[in-house]
């Protein structure tokens, strides 16, 4: 395997640097698009380990500064929650 195939960008979903760079080479330079295609940023860590690497790769590929690249959207809940717990709380109806 090549070095890029052995380099993990997203530990939660086992996405490699090769997969990320291949997508960028195909023209995907929007973090949220890459997130939907690869699940980068959608695992238990919600992007805490991979975001900085993804932003830097996008910056190198597009020539834009990291500050000019749109970050991924964060939405609740930040960790997994059993539906049962939500339905129990919903009974309170407040």
């Amino acid at each position: 395997m090549t070095n890029e195939e052995n380099t993990i960008v997203c530990r939660c979903s086992d996405v490699t640097l090769k997969e990320l760079r291949d997508l960028i080479a195909e023209g995907y330079t929007d973090y949220n698009e890459i997130k939907r295609l690869t699940r980068i940023g959608m695992g238990p860590c919600q992007g805490k380990t991979c975001t900085q690497i993804v932003l830097r790769e996008l910056s190198m590929a597009t020539g834009k500064k990291v500050s000019e690249i749109e970050n991924q959207k964060n939405r609740p809940p930040v960790v997994g929650v059993k539906l049962k717990l939500i339905s129990e709380e919903a009974q309170n109806n407040d």
Binding site: N6, T7, I8, R11, K48, T49, C50, Q52, I53
Partner: peptide, 12 residues
């Protein structure tokens, strides 16, 4: 804060 991570071969 959370820790930054590095991308290098066999980093897992």
């Amino acid at each position: 804060a959370s820790e930054k991570f590095l991308a290098f071969p066999n980093n897992d």
